[in-house]
Simulated scan of single mutants.
Amino acid sequence: MDNNLITETENTSEQIACIKCGSPQILAGYPNKLCADCRQQLIKFPIPLWVKLFGAGIALVMIISFIWLPGNLSAAIALSRAEKAEKSHDYITAQNELKKAQNNAPHAIEILSHLTIAAFHNGDFKTVLEASDKLQGKEIEDTALYNELNNVITQTNEYFPSDTFKTSFKKYKNLVIPDSAYRTYIKKNPMDIYTIVALASSYSDNNDKYQNADTLLSKAIAIDRSYIPALYLKTMIKRELNQPDSSIYYCDQVLLINHQSTYALSSKARTFLKVGKNKEGLLLAKQCYQLDADMPYNLATLALAYHFNKDFKQRDAILDSVKKDSTNAPYITYVKDIISNKIKFQN
């Protein structure tokens, strides 16, 4: 008899037999008690079709995950960088990273939420509306993110005329709204910050009404200290009123909200230039240009900075590069008027 076979011949309390056929001749050395024939049959037993299909499905999922992994990983890295920039109030960096993330995950709720927030702080309301529209009907599980997003959407509404405003001024559709109409409306709607700033803005082109504009802007800021249009105008009005310290104060108030606000940085550069701090002004103007090389206000500021630092070659290069675009005309005209001394800029 084969030495590998164990034949049960003695009477014991537990009979040892093949668990499949009951044969007492089982193969030793295996945890499952099987005879040689049954063990061989099980070894050759065909794999069921459903097991093969299941395995193929798992393999397919793994292949797809390997294909998509680089995109998902890139989106995750970009989102992480954006969140870090957002916490640091560097919203241009945040929005740039979120655009990268969106390219790989265009419908990701978290990416769209942060993109809406960053775009709002950058004054990019086109992106705010596009991103927030894609979030309609979506569930945002992160409570803090939801609250911040909700706050941004509420604030965005204040940057546009209300239905009450539209109804009250519809007769002036293609006409300039007179001061008296503005003031009557504000008296009835004293918390309508959009209208208060709109009236202040209408005064910003008139030297004789700078003080009136300043008073209105103070009223707007009393309603909402973070209302960017009011703070922006304050930086300019205070500069034109020869109050440079106050102008810089309001620039810094904007920069507390968004460290990369190119308008605030550019306005601060102009205030430095106005008081003769030409090198400081040029440094800030260059910083603005690095953040946004297309914004006409920034380009005009950089041209002014080069002018007062007597780098006329660089000044003229900027003016030549933007003169083809008609939207730049008001900014270029302002710079040329300062260059020709038509406008006295520095004290």
Rank of each mutant, 00 (worst) to 15 (best):
I318D: 00
L231N: 07
Y334N: 02
K219E: 12
C38T: 08
N347H: 01
Q314R: 06
E280C: 05
N341G: 10
K20R: 10
T93F: 11
I177T: 06
D2E: 08
T215V: 04
I248P: 00
D311F: 14
K33E: 09
H121C: 04
V152M: 07
G123M: 06
I19N: 13
F345L: 06
Q25Y: 11
Q346K: 11
K234R: 11
Y91M: 15
L265W: 07
L273M: 09
A101F: 11
N72M: 13
V176Y: 10
L291M: 06
N174D: 11
L319T: 03
I16V: 15
K268H: 15
K342N: 15
L42K: 03
N150M: 08
L273V: 03
T164H: 08
M236A: 09
A303G: 03
P46S: 08
D245C: 01
I196Q: 00
N298E: 01
Y334E: 09
D142F: 10
C251N: 10
T164W: 10
I318P: 00
A222M: 11
Q290S: 13
N189W: 12
G55S: 15
K277E: 09
E97D: 15
V275Y: 05
Y30E: 05
L135K: 11
L60W: 07
P48A: 05
A105N: 13
D337T: 02
K33T: 08
S180T: 06
S88H: 14
S132R: 10
N3C: 00
N278I: 03
A131C: 09
N157F: 10
I58C: 11
G281H: 03
F120R: 10
A285E: 04
K324Y: 01
H114N: 14
N242I: 06
D90K: 15
K336F: 01
D163Q: 12
Y334G: 00
G71R: 15
A118D: 05
Q102I: 03
I26M: 09
K188A: 14
K279S: 10
L284F: 04
E10T: 05
L42T: 02
K234L: 06
D294L: 13
D311S: 03
L79S: 02
K336M: 07
E10C: 06
D214H: 10
A329M: 14
A85N: 12
Y30G: 00
F169Q: 12
L69M: 11
N104W: 14
A131W: 14
H259K: 15
K187D: 03
E86Q: 14
N151M: 13
P46H: 11
T143K: 14
V176Q: 08
I6Q: 08
L256R: 08
K277D: 10
P46F: 11
G276T: 08
Y263M: 02
N4W: 07
K84W: 01
N328E: 01
K336N: 07
R39T: 01
Q314E: 11
E83K: 15
